[in-house]
Amino acid sequence: MRKTHVNASLYRLIYCSRNVIGRVMPGATVDDELRTILAVARRRNKSDGITGALLFTASGFAQVLEGPRETVEVTFERITADPRHAGVTVLSFTPTERRSFPDWSMAFTAQAAKGKPDPLEHLLADATFAGPRATTGSDVLRLLEKVVQREDAWIAA
């Protein structure tokens, strides 16, 4: 009972967005921008008590953020302001008993390998044209869990 109470304000946010780095920053390399995003996010999220995972592919971003409700809300406001992505769609925002990514201040998975199908593509199309469905949030969560387990976290230099 006590534990439930302590975690009462723990929330999990899952969103996806389109990658527009190439469009808004013609000079920037995607790799450099990602390093910056991660370096800033890691430092900030660690002090804010936010954990989660970021999935990046050629088409866009999908991110899970876990932490105290208000902190997640404030972090999300900051994220929406970032010009490097567009079409931010919240797939789910719900209270949760436990963190799915307790050990990562921000895990990163670069699934942009050539030849591989882009796991975000159908998701972004769904979110854009059909509106978020109840299943897309858990899809992203499962996808990220799988990828994070399989690949080494990509550490920003």
Binding site: R69, E77, A86
Partner: peptide
């Protein structure tokens, strides 16, 4: 118009 059409998180709600 663009930034205000992005979702908001308000008191635990989208």
């Amino acid at each position: 118009v663009d930034v205000l059409s992005s979702p908001f998180l308000v008191e635990g709600q989208v």
